[in-house]
Design a protein around this nucleic acid. Structure first.
Length: 206
DNA sequence: CGGCTGATCGTG
DNA sequence: ACGATCAGCCGA
């Protein structure tokens, strides 16, 4: 396993759009009970603080839930959505500036990660119904959505408000070089209520 | 592939 | 009440 450098505070202490673009190709690492999971980040969204109608912090909503967004760049923000899924974000900028990047999609960085992701993804489904044969379909959609990403990487609300520039279990490392022409931009997903902000091209993917 | 629906619960 | 969602199911 080649050694990759961990991303430092300086990386995250920039505006959310820059961090969102530059996180593409980087590797999210999480220590789980099943082993170390590494995912190459392939899709992100920027949430740009108190002026962004799409953001939880719009209008200065600094609450217990949104508090991690106000923390230093590199702080995790994991919240429960629709009562049953988690969404994983990393705060950008500095203390009191609540910009953040939603991680929407990763692909496994190695064979061990792929195996663990599959196990973690199958577990809840097996519980619901004794359905075999779903494996091939799950493999095609291992972590291609914010909820699926969290399940596949074993991320839950216990991973909220972690300083990812310091943690030994939860951090981001350098990955593969991405040329700017490989980065595509689109509208953010699932924020139709956000008025004109729903049309901003703040979603980035490879 | 695109569209629709039920599931489920912490937060404000 | 309401989601920064997902799986399952339907029809084309």
């Amino acid at each position: 396993m080649e050694k990759k450098k961990r991303l430092t505070r300086a990386f995250f202490a920039r505006d959310g759009i820059t961090v969102a673009r530059e996180l593409l190709g980087k590797i999210l690492v999480h220590e789980t009970p099943l082993g170390t999971v590494r995912g190459i980040i392939t899709e992100t969204e920027a949430y740009m603080g108190e002026e962004d109608k799409g953001s939880h912090t719009y209008g200065g909503r600094r609450t217990d839930r949104t508090e991690p967004m106000y923390h230093k760049g590199g702080t995790s923000y994991v919240y429960l959505i629709y009562g049953m899924y988690s969404c994983m974000n990393i705060a950008a900028m500095r203390e009191d500036i609540p910009q953040a990047v939603l991680l929407r999609s990763v692909i496994p960085a190695d064979a061990q990660s792929e195996r663990i992701m599959l196990d973690l993804r199958l577990a809840p489904l097996n519980q619901k119904r004794k359905r075999a044969g779903k494996e091939s379909n799950i493999k095609k959609h291992l972590a291609d959505g914010p909820g699926k990403l969290c399940i596949a990487m074993g991320i839950s609300r216990s991973d909220n408000d972690v300083d990812m520039t310091k943690s030994k279990e939860f951090y981001v490392t350098e990955g593969q070089e991405i040329r700017t022409e490989e980065i595509k931009a689109g509208k953010r997903i699932g924020i139709d209520y956000a008025g004109e902000a729903a049309d901003y091209l703040w979603r980035f993917y490879l």
